[in-house]
């Protein structure tokens, strides 16, 4: 279908009701929005990376995530059955309808902040997709089987950089410590579980189960260079309920404005 038709005029409140009535749609949107929003953030690095080789590497990761997001959004739209395609879901939902965790919407900061976010998120996504391969839902299982290989690379890329920044120069170490501090408040939300997860049973992966293997990987990387994830002075959550930080509004405004300026147009 062409995005932007009458269906897309659905109010967010209605959409939220629909989503609640359709746990699989809601769950798929969580996975999709995490990938989409992080891809959008990483895309901001292009032409600004510390070295040309790194422009290429970050673009690869952004492209992988965008590919995952597209497959998942398409599937969410099909499952929902209301005629929304990947673009209708990406461009015509408002902030309150986005289901991503707060971590991925955080501004890029310097390269250390971005690498801290990458390490934490890619390690989480790796454990998630690794288990989702066994999902009772065949489409999710297939997306995960492809994505887990991509994410294994993302995780390693982040680990290489966190080691180098953590044990490079005095300046890079300070920045790496600050980077870990900056993203720490948004880590716990990744592992929150809720009714939706239990409702979905063998279709979904329980985020709470990921914490231990995730920590084993992340801690090993950090310990190698004498770093650790600090105790948080506060934690932030709410992304899964569509309660985001202010930054997401600007991210979406930029991402969506052209598409929304031409209702019904094809690109």
């Amino acid at each position: 279908m062409r995005s932007g038709n009458a269906n897309s005029g659905t109010r967010w409140a209605d959409a939220e009701l629909t989503a609640r009535a359709q746990p699989l749609v809601e769950y798929t949107l969580r996975l999709a929005d995490d990938a989409l929003v992080l891809s959008q953030r990483l895309g901001e690095w292009i032409t600004r990376a510390p070295e040309l080789e790194e422009d290429v590497a970050l673009a690869n990761i952004a492209l992988d995530l965008l590919g995952q997001a597209r497959a998942l959004l398409t599937y969410a739209g099909q499952t929902e059955g209301a005629g929304r395609d990947e673009d209708a879901l990406a461009y015509l939902r408002d902030d309150r309808e986005f289901r991503n965790v707060l971590l991925v919407e955080q501004p890029n900061g310097d390269f250390a902040v971005t690498m801290a976010r990458q390490l934490v998120f890619a390690a989480y996504q790796y454990e998630l997709y690794d288990r989702l391969r066994a999902s009772a839902d065949q489409t999710l299982a297939a997306v995960a089987a492809k994505a887990v290989k991509e994410v294994a690379y993302h995780r390693e890329h982040a680990a290489l950089w966190v080691r180098r920044l953590g044990d490079g120069t005095d300046e890079s170490r300070l920045r790496m410590v600050a980077g870990l501090d900056a993203i720490r408040p948004f880590v716990d939300e990744l592992f929150d579980t809720d009714d939706l997860i239990s409702q979905l049973g063998a279709v979904a992966v329980d985020p709470a189960d990921l914490r231990e293997p995730w920590a084993a990987y992340v801690d090993a990387v950090l310990i190698d260079v004498g770093l650790e994830l600090p105790d948080p002075d506060h934690t932030a959550r709410g992304g899964r309920l569509g309660l985001h930080g202010e930054a997401l509004g600007y991210l979406l405004a930029e991402m969506q404005h052209l598409h929304r300026s031409h209702p019904g147009a094809s690109w």
């Binding site: 952004a62 492209l63 597209r70 052209l258 598409h259 690109w267």
Partner: peptide
């Protein structure tokens, strides 16, 4: 700001 996800992927790949 690419107006569709398909165009965004193409443009990312091209700039890369």
């Amino acid at each position: 700001r690419a107006p569709s996800l398909r165009r965004k992927a193409i443009l990312l790949a091209k700039v890369q």
